[in-house]
Design a protein around this nucleic acid. Structure first.
Length: 823
RNA sequence: GCCGGGAUGGUGGAACUGGUAGACACAAGGGACUUAAAAUCCCUCGAAAAGUAAUUUUCGUGCGGGUUCGACUCCCGCUCCCGGCACCA
């Protein structure tokens, strides 16, 4: 047995022992009566090698999984690979090797790194999403969605990223640019596949209330993204060339109370009426053309000057019958509401600016509840009381909304309406390295989904991508297929799925990774939903929204019920902060990365784990510090020496009070560390408590049996409580001090209430709330006794001199506060 | 503009439900051991003032008020920083 702490040796040794004993496997035996617990970290994209962000993410999750195991739970803690995606294609172009090869090579490398870290994964459940056995179920699900009308193909204006040569979902456009390559996206009209997430908008919003274990921040971001507004849809008549036409102009408004203030209408450049007007108006056609080109960069849209042009058409007001001009305006979005708005310059800043610029009348229909307002100067956007609104005069805005909407409903010119910002999820991509969309186009039968018995549609893995059009389109063997309905020659869809499709349901597949159906309902019953999910906040409206949606799709496809898998996939969510170096996120381009391998090689996995957990609270950013890593390593070495010095066998008498004090420290530490695990995972605080305890153990010198027993008790508790953080070290420590079980499977230490009882306690003494000294009294001393002790204490007594005691407050176990005033 | 989260020593951060602010670490300074270095161990470490000294006093959790015997913590009003969304009708 080596005397020095040799992390490389002991880490290899214990990893082998854990594997041999199968301690990390989730148990599927029906006879296992332990409560189940599902702990999951966001699975990695196999980019090449682990970075510190991964290390932090997985160490956090591992600490939770290990703690729960020690607490007697049957824990499911799986890992796999989010293996489809663009970087593999780019690497394939660069190295002239198929993306599959690159991907599997990276998986091997990263698996090795995860193993080195000693993470307690159930490796028997590992899968990669690029395996046909995985994506076949996604294809199967998609065909079901098409049948139910929940997935559809439609030509629409979509986001196009030129460098990535593909369309993007709205969620993948960040500040007008591609989330991957940061290039501003363009708008293009293309036929694409969508999934009807908007059908679930209401449930996705309402169920946010069930997510009591999620950070407010993420809930807020999702709520914001779904963007529910209530108002009315209003139908205006349309007059062309002085004659009323059959057409109507429908708009959505959240302010029906301002309807009487409409002085013009505005439609988007892509609106039907705008196009129609342009047919006979070349200048307008030119303007529409400009609008469609200028609006390619979303980021610029908000800053753009407001411009517009009269279509010549008039709208007929649904209540007054008055006609107002219909304009085309570059600020009206085709993709929200109906692509048209009613304009009330008196009560909307944007409309005011526009009306002012083009000399359109501004009419006041709302006045402040008290005070005056001149709408010619500026729009009054608050709610108030209606004026100049005929029969609605005098109503408050709130009442007027109901009254006006009610009137429109009775006249069949409008209805109450809920509008969402959320748009349907665009899931097709013009990329090669993804799951093929299981659809066939037949000249006779049209679009046909691939029948279940012909799934999976396997992606040919040997093709060479070029960065331009997907090589799938040029792959005859893939494209040519017989129509499943009529048997004639037909063509396959060559687009693939957005990779967020794979990551939207992997958490459910882990419950039964080999199931001969998409998921096994009994396994869902046992494991789902995920009890604790851990990952980065950057997926707040991407993965975390899609996964919630997909979970509900699976439920509604009858794959499991609410009782089996729940309505939500993740019960509790921990969003960890980023790992920074020199104040910036670690990145290759900035050159401020720290290689996990180098840290593990120099200090061992346990030191790497300990530092990432100790240096900051989980949800905050972590500033990398080489000195901090040294510090974490020093702590382990101190405990190592402590262990070696505790094997002495002195034959003297211990100071009773010192032994009791040590046991008090041990058991308050158990309390504190347990509390950290049960409330918010403040591992930095838990580790600090363990450091304090080890400091107390180091300071204590056992002189006899009792002292030695207390030290052993402390060391055992220390080994057990260190196990979730530094499992190899904890096991080695446990073995050397003679623990029966491996530390990682030991029972979590239990607080000995008797050890917490103190005969004497120290009370802080305050005069007027200011600390003036402290006294030691019996633990159940009453106020009188405490006061007597305080008066007997010189440094306290001098403050009472010449003072009259007005009031005395005793906070048991904490302090005595004496309120005085001059006599 | 809207929504969320913050602000505590030189630094990262502690502080239960309103009860001894600065735990635990890092850095820094001093010392021990050593031929020397590394490693290790010990001491000091919020600011200011007084004292030879032990020590004592005052101030101190972004700013201004308030509630309370007592406020980092609660209330009102601000400032600044970070993250997200934003011509959404």
């Amino acid at each position: 047995m080596s005397d020095r702490y040799e992390p490389q040796e002991i880490e290899k040794k214990w990893q082998a022992k854990w594997d041999a004993a199968g301690v990390d496997l989730a148990c599927e035996e029906p006879s296992d009566t332990r409560e189940s617990y599902y702990c999951l970290e966001m699975f990695p994209y196999p980019s090449g090698s682990l970075h510190m962000g991964h290390v932090r993410n997985y160490c956090l999750g591992d600490a939770v999984a290990r703690y729960k195991r020690m607490h007697g739970y049957n824990v499911l803690h799986p890992i796999g690979w989010d293996a489809f995606g663009l970087p593999a294609e780019n690497a394939a172009i660069k190295h002239k090797r198929p993306p599959a090869e690159w991907t599997y090579h990276n998986i091997d490398q990263m698996r090795g790194q995860l193993r080195q870290l000693g993470l307690s994964y159930d490796w028997s459940r590992e899968f990669a999403t690029c395996q046909p056995e995985y994506y076949r179920w996604e294809q199967w699900m998609f065909t079901r969605l098409v049948e139910k009308g929940l997935a559809y193909r439609k030509e629409a204006e979509v986001n196009w990223c030129q460098p990535c040569h593909t369309v993007l979902a709205n969620e993948q456009v960040v500040e007008g640019a591609c989330w991957r390559c940061d290039t501003p996206v363009e708008r293009k009209n293309l036929a694409q596949w969508f999934i009807r997430i908007t059908d679930y908008a209401e449930e996705l919003l309402a169920d946010l209330d069930k997510l009591t274990g999620w950070p407010e921040k993420v809930i807020g971001m999702q709520r914001n993204w779904i963007g529910r507004s209530t108002g009315a849809e209003v139908s205006f008549g349309v007059e062309a060339n002085g004659k009323q036409s059959d057409e109507t102009l429908d708009i959505f408004t959240t302010r029906p109370d301002t309807l009487m203030g409409v002085t013009y209408m505005a439609v988007a450049a892509g609106h039907r009426l705008a196009k129609k007007a342009a047919e006979s108006n070349p200048e307008l056609a030119k303007f529409l053309h400009e609008c469609s080109h200028i609006s390619t960069k979303e980021a610029d849209v908000a800053l753009m000057e407001k411009r517009g042009m009269d279509t010549g058409f008039k709208a007929i007001h649904p209540i007054t019958g008055e006609t107002v001009p219909i304009w085309v305006a570059n600020f009206v979005l085709m993709s929200y509401g109906t692509g048209a708005v009613m304009s009330v310059p008196g009560h909307d800043e944007r409309d005011h600016e526009f009306a002012h610029k083009y000399g359109i009348p501004i009419r006041q229909v709302i006045r402040p509840v008290d005070g005056e307002w001149d709408v010619q100067e500026a729009a009054f956007v608050d709610t108030g009381v209606l004026v100049n609104s005929g029969q609605f005069d005098g109503l408050a805005s709130v009442e007027a909304k109901a009254a006006i909407t009610g009137y429109l409903v009775s006249e069949s010119k409008g209805e109450e309406r809920v509008q969402y910002r959320l748009r349907d999820w665009l899931v097709s991509r013009q990329r090669y390295w993804g799951a093929p969309i299981p659809v066939i186009y037949c000249d006779d039968c049209g679009m046909v989904t691939v029948p279940e018995d012909q799934l999976p549609v396997v992606l040919p893995e040997e093709l060479q991508p070029t960065g331009g059009a997907s090589p799938l389109a040029g792959c005859e063997a893939f494209v040519h297929v017989d129509c499943p309905e009529c048997g004639k020659a037909a063509r396959r869809e060559t687009d693939t799925f957005d990779t967020f499709m794979e990551s939207s349901w992997y958490m459910n597949r882990f419950t039964s990774p080999c199931s001969e159906s998409m998921v096994d309902a009994a396994a869902m019953q046992r494991w789902a939903p995920v009890d604790q999910y851990v990952g980065g906040v950057e997926h707040a409206v991407l993965h975390l929204l899609y996964a919630r949606f997909y979970h509900k799709l699976m439920r509604d496809a009858g794959l499991f019920t609410s009782a089996e898998g729940g309505d939500e996939p993740f019960r509790n969510l921990l969003t960890q902060g980023m790992v920074l170096k020199d104040g910036a996120k670690m990145s290759k381009s900035k050159g401020n990365t720290v290689d996990p391998n180098a840290i593990i090689g120099k200090y061992g996995a346990d030191t790497a784990r300990l530092f990432t957990l100790f240096a900051a609270p989980p949800e905050k950013d972590l500033e990398w510090s080489d000195a901090g890593v040294e510090g974490a390593n020093r702590f382990l070495k101190r405990v190592w020496r402590l262990m070696e010095s505790a094997t002495a066998s002195p034959a003297g008498e211990d100071n009773q009070a010192a032994v009791r004090a040590l046991r008090l420290t041990i058991h308050t530490t158990i309390q504190r560390v347990t509390h950290a695990f049960e409330h918010g995972f403040a591992f930095n605080v838990a580790i600090a408590a363990l450091m304090e305890m080890s400091n107390a153990l180091i300071a204590f010198e056992p002189k006899g049996e009792k002292g030695l027993a207390a030290v052993r008790e402390g060391l055992q508790a220390l080994a057990a409580m260190l196990a979730p953080f530094v499992p190899h070290f904890a096991c080695e420590l446990g073995e050397r001090i003679g623990m029966q079980k491996m530390a990682v499977v030991a029972d979590w230490p239990v607080v000995d209430e008797a050890a917490l009882v103190q005969d004497e306690i120290t009370l802080a003494v305050q005069i007027q709330g200011k600390r003036r000294g402290e006294i030691t009294v019996a633990k159940d001393a009453d106020q009188e006794t405490a006061m007597a002790a305080a008066k007997a204490n010189q440094s306290i007594a001098k403050w009472l001199d010449g003072m009259q005691i007005v009031k005395v407050i005793l906070v048991p176990g904490r302090l005595l506060n004496i309120v005085v005033r001059p006599e």
